[in-house]
Design a protein around this nucleic acid. Sequence first.
DNA 1: CTCCTTCCTGAGACTGGTTCCCACTATAAC
DNA 2: GTTATAGTGGGAACCAGTCTCAGGAAGGAG
Lengths: 134, 134
Amino acid sequence: MVVVPRQTRQRAEILDLLEDIDEFRSAQQLHEMLRARGSSVGLATVYRAVQSLSEHGDVDVLRTEDGESVYRRCEQRSHHHHLVCRSCGRTVEIEAGQAEAWAAQVGAAHGFDDVDHTIELVGTCATCRAASAS
Amino acid sequence: MVVVPRQTRQRAEILDLLEDIDEFRSAQQLHEMLRARGSSVGLATVYRAVQSLSEHGDVDVLRTEDGESVYRRCEQRSHHHHLVCRSCGRTVEIEAGQAEAWAAQVGAAHGFDDVDHTIELVGTCATCRAASAS
DNA sequence: CTCCTTCCTGAGACTGGTTCCCACTATAAC
DNA sequence: GTTATAGTGGGAACCAGTCTCAGGAAGGAG
């Protein structure tokens, strides 16, 4: 009953590109990178692709501080969180079992059900720290 | 050296309104509510006010799922988090010492410094659960 | 109280990310 | 192949939020 998206050249190219990237990127950045690679894909198509991919859990979405959506193909398909370097964008996928247990417990303590959580960490990675310390 | 914003009718009215509200509201909603109250304040002014208030720590800001900023006057002026009902918007201010300790620890484990965290909880409050169960 | 500087206000123009529209094209089932 | 249908793309539309700038109000100095 799950609708499988049709396989098109455009989707393949977008997935290919995502494979090669390790940082969160916006739809517009992806669009530019595709054009730089010489493949022409419409911006609207990039938006549709990342959206459908994120719905299927194939890519993760984050909202930047200025409200832009950024996407990244993650190793873990299961639920996880991110620790992102604010300077270079390097991203570490993290388990948050402890924090999630805490969230569920706090929710229950206040009589809330079906508690969803948003947990994201932003810091400065060791490499960038060293670079800026010079 | 801290610049105190000038005291104007508009700011006073916006603060008054925020006192009467317990849920997170967008700038546009606040603007409408002000007009409904019969006071005329420009939308741009509402944006400027909530922005300056949030910078001073007088109101809290959250980003909704669709990227809208919503504001709320909070009891606690110190750092805290929120547990929001997805149905009625009722909001509980919560302490997250445990989760914050975890965040700092995870960051350190990966060599990240100055780790900021975003932690927000959304659930269904007891009242709304009861209402929808009927 | 008055003057004067400075900041605030507000209507509308503008921006930038994202979605919609719709004619055209490509996929995949038969 | 043929066909039904979903995907594509370019541009228009949308919308939250910001900027512009002329007029107005706050509040310190005198």
